[in-house]
Design a protein around this nucleic acid. Structure first.
Lengths: 184, 184
DNA sequence: TTGCAATATATGTAGAATCATATATGCATC
DNA sequence: GATGCATATATGATTCTACATATATTGCAA
């Protein structure tokens, strides 16, 4: 249940509406490690408000529809800090591509290579994206500190994509080397 | 929805009961990339049977409770092959640990290091586990081919754990270097 | 003026995942 | 005889996730 905590964390930057959370964060940076759709964000905000972890205030806009501005409360900040400091049991990540590769003996070499190359191309693009991504400049001390930790997660994304591209290249080379056989 | 296809794939090895699927595969090898609990496996088998992708037969046991042996059908094999050969859109993996690290500016240095070191220890153990893991010997041609692809996914696990340990070490070093500040 | 895009919030529904619990057999152990 | 464990299947309940759809405002372009 990290969506709850991701939202609480983002609200420590500044009070925000659900729309801003989505368009500024869940469509960009946070998307890499915790994607969430609009419906989920709005419902989680409602749940957080019901629990007293956030409070809301309607902001009237001239040129745009009114917003519900959410702020983190003291209780919300306590909950967040507690979660952040806790050692959580490792959660195994589900990876459909590994399922695909694991049973790839059922495919022809041509089919296997097609799937592997598509995957490699995807991760090459991601690698390119993260290698060219520049961290935003920070104005306050808090945000300077924030950018440091953002840098650590960016470093992870770069290492991960590099590893994936290398591994996929090795897979492609291996499959090309193996003798073609009955696919079963 | 890869649980469905993981089960279909495993049933290409041999007909199996839900219990065997769970204890022999989903508690071991498959667990690394597609963990599933017992309830889910049994319910997915029921759904697969309702769809005609698998068929079942009750096997009477003397010393143990009777089993429901599931076999993949022609329709199931077609569905599996189609899914295996398809290029699926990349699914972003949710990673709660990255959420934790991203907002770690709210913690003290001591708390951050504690969390990072626990994570590093976990992945060191996994690294050790995968580095010492030996692929099973294969008897038939099909299983020899299977072991090759199992080797590719094992290679992934090793590379991934190596990358994670290196990255976590770098994170720990970076945090130790940074000046201690107000945590906010 | 009609229609479209961006902004903004909300709900309905279905599927997937998790956790707990229920039932039953046979075996070993206390 | 009671207890616990491994084997074996099933269901109830809840949460999480995803996808679709509904509603409303403003600005802009065809």
């Amino acid at each position: 249940m990290s969506l709850r905590h991701a939202i609480l964390g983002l609200l420590t930057f500044e009070p925000m509406s659900g729309y801003t959370l989505k368009s500024r964060y869940f469509d960009k940076s946070v998307a890499y490690f915790w994607p969430a759709d609009q419906a989920q964000i709005y419902r989680t905000l409602q749940a957080l408000e019901a629990d007293g972890a956030v409070s809301s205030e309607t902001v009237e806009n001239d040129k745009r529809p009114n917003q519900k501005q959410y702020s983190i409360t003291g209780a919300g900040e306590r909950e967040l800090r507690e979660w952040l400091a806790a050692i959580h049991p490792p959660v195994t990540q589900k990876d459909g591509f590994l399922v695909q590769l694991y049973f790839a003996r059922m495919l022809s070499r041509h089919q296997i290579l097609r799937v592997l190359q598509a995957q490699r191309d995807t991760h090459r693009q991601l690698q390119d994206h993260f290698d060219n991504l520049v961290l935003p400049a920070a104005d306050t001390a808090t945000m300077k500190r924030q950018v440091r930790f953002g840098g650590l997660t960016l470093d992870y994304a770069r290492r991960r994509e590099k590893m994936l591209v290398e591994w996929l290249e090795a897979c492609i080379a291996a499959v090309q080397e193996w003798p073609e056989q009955e696919s079963i």
